[in-house]
Design a protein around this nucleic acid. Structure first.
Lengths: 205, 205
DNA sequence: AGTTACCTGTGATATTGATCACAATACAAA
DNA sequence: TTTGTATTGTGATCAATATCACAGGTAACT
């Protein structure tokens, strides 16, 4: 598996170190990779697939925060790993995914020795923080119709596909809304010629 | 100024380095310390006062994310400084505040040399990330009444005071709501004996 | 073909919060 | 004391969204 190509800035020595110590794991669509309250023993680098990072509400709600794709890493797992504290979020494989688990014991050492790792970690924090900011923006300032459009657009960008296999109920869960509202808003978008609706599938135009 | 006491874990060498290179700045209540789109040239350590970190919406809205108090640092300024990118948030002094500005050029060096600084940076990322998560939780899962209670409780915790000098309008701005709504909810809280309302002042019971 | 389990569409109604309008109050300055 | 200004209280109304109720469609399995 040519995982190095996903992290082209890592120096050869670092690549070697990771290769020696990390474990590659496969997840099926729907598998939970990390759950709220769990202790984290390694940092996750995504090689393939798509990981959904979301927040769970005790009284039964989910809320999508962002997706991780190949070449990205979970900022929360980095921080938790370093501090050996528990995670506050859930991570689920959206599709079949491959993840490289780098043991936490290496983290300190890698941060010191490898500039490229240090940069990568900082870059990861930065991106996730920004994504969280845009999530806050959306729920604080936007109505559901705009949030839905943003949601679909983001998905298209992430996957590069213009079809999206998902039910209205799942979208409602991600946006913490209700199925009926999403159905109605999608209908309106269809009337505006932004999407075409099918069963379990939305086509972006 | 005995700023070291606020950062008891910093090694003496690190303290000395900071002392030699950092600049202490004073801000009056209401001063903007950092604005959206601005390039960041130093990392801010709060020595005294209270800094409000908030998000600004192009079409005229603010949204409070969290406060920084003495001994805390701005995670955004750290990340931006390292990457020499622009900030995506606003920082404003809520009261007279003292801030230590550590030039960005030192950051890399300090991260490598001083374990205590490294730990501090990680700890800062972690805390701010968690705070952002709880912000997301609140707006995603809670109604305004709960958000208001959380807002008041958090303020009490941060300041240690049980009185809060603020107008209903300002609270509404922080929560991105409207003055009337906040007034009504506060009245209800008063009826439940959770607060006593005065002009420009709320007393927590 | 019949059954079952999901999806989707749509009306009716309820709730939350935003907005408008205006009154009442409190403090400060003249 | 008067006047002015900012703050607060409150009713009425509106908009967005959640919730309930139910109908019809579509795929999957027997």
């Amino acid at each position: 598996m040519e995982w190095k190509k996903l992290f082209p800035n890592f120096e050869p020595e670092l690549v070697e170190l990771i290769e020696k110590n990390a474990v590659q794991r496969s997840f099926n669509a729907g598998d939970i990779i990390m759950r709220t309250g769990q202790y984290i023993k390694s940092t996750a680098l995504v090689l393939e697939g798509q990981i959904k990072i979301y927040r769970e509400n005790p009284d039964g709600g989910e809320f999508l925060m962002y997706y991780l794709g190949p070449g990205q890493a979970c900022a929360v797992s980095m921080i938790c790993a370093i501090q050996s504290t528990t995670s506050e979020i859930m991570a689920k494989a959206e599709v079949e995914s491959e993840v490289l688990m780098v043991p936490v014991q290496l983290m300190d050492d890698m941060m010191n020795k490898y500039k490229s790792w240090y940069q990568f970690v900082i870059q990861t924090y930065r991106s996730r923080f920004d994504e969280l900011l845009s999530v806050v923006d959306n729920i604080a300032f936007r109505n559901m119709d705009e949030r839905l459009e943003f949601y679909l657009k983001r998905h298209a960008e992430k996957t590069g596909k213009k079809t999206f296999e998902i039910s209205h109920q799942e979208i409602a869960d991600d946006l913490h809304s209700s199925r009926e509202v999403i159905s109605r808003l999608l209908k309106k978008m269809e009337q505006r010629n932004l999407v075409k609706l099918h069963r379990n599938m939305i086509e972006l135009v």
